[in-house]
Nucleic acid binder design. Structure first.
Lengths: 132, 132
DNA sequence: ATCTCAAATTATACTATATCTAAATTTAAA
DNA sequence: TTTAAATTTAGATATAGTATAATTTGAGAT
């Protein structure tokens, strides 16, 4: 709980019970959360929390760089607690998205880019994950 | 009109007035179309066309490789008449997405990928486009 | 040419996701 | 304690997409 509070403060986010509850959910182990998943879990701790509040706070956390918004296949939005740069691997069989370490992929661009000044990039890979 | 019909046939798509109208819109000059944009334009030619029909046919065209589905920032889905492999550049100032030639970017992967067998990839670049 | 019928396709109605609005409540500073 | 600003709530609305019922298509039989 103290960790969470410290983290919110570090990111310039004011404290409310709703925000603490949302942060407790999204900063847990799993790294990709849909808004509705978060809402359902937060409701267990705070039954009166409204859906709009969850959405508002998730988007605030993105704006304050506590989370990153990621787009899955089909346009579904999830919130990612890993804000460090990383790439994504989409397992086409399971539909699962996995984080790939930044250094695992090297990207070089050529002059053919022309007018585009690249500030940031991310590689989306598709394929399958070998059986464990 | 004949071009459109030939194209639909090549891709194994049966002919209906609705499909011809949708194809006429999306195979025009601009390369990224939202479903609702398509619907509005198609309605001008076929006022009874339903939204579901437009969605159904856009998704069919993707399935038959006449179009490619692309996900924009925020999870918005657009349909792209350029089905050749290409990368994307998102202009952060205008929110516009631009196609980048495949060869303009080279990607190498390393062992750190581990379990992931990459079949396909795409690079999403962000930045700005120099003034014209 | 016409009819039949199953499959394909479209339209109607419904659902999912996300955001807006105004009122109510809480926060944080004085 | 007060107060202004921030935040949440509850309900409505916007955006996007889909399920199901209705209609059309296409092939084969007559």
């Amino acid at each position: 709980m103290e960790d969470i509070i410290a983290k919110l403060r570090e990111h310039g986010i004011g404290l409310t019970p709703q925000r603490i509850a949302v942060a407790q959910v999204v900063l847990r182990d799993r790294s990709h959360w849909s808004a509705d998943e978060v809402w359902q879990l937060v409701q267990q701790r705070l039954p009166t929390v409204s859906r709009a509040t969850v959405y508002n706070n998730l988007n605030l956390f993105v704006a304050k760089h506590l989370l990153k918004e990621q787009i899955l296949q089909g346009g579904h939005v999830v919130f990612d607690s890993c804000v460090e740069p990383h790439h994504h691997f989409l397992d086409e069989q399971t539909g699962q998205i996995h984080d790939v370490p930044w250094e695992a992929v090297r990207v070089e661009t050529h002059d053919a880019l022309g007018d585009f000044e690249v500030r940031d990039y991310q590689v989306i890979m598709r394929g399958r994950r070998r059986n464990h």
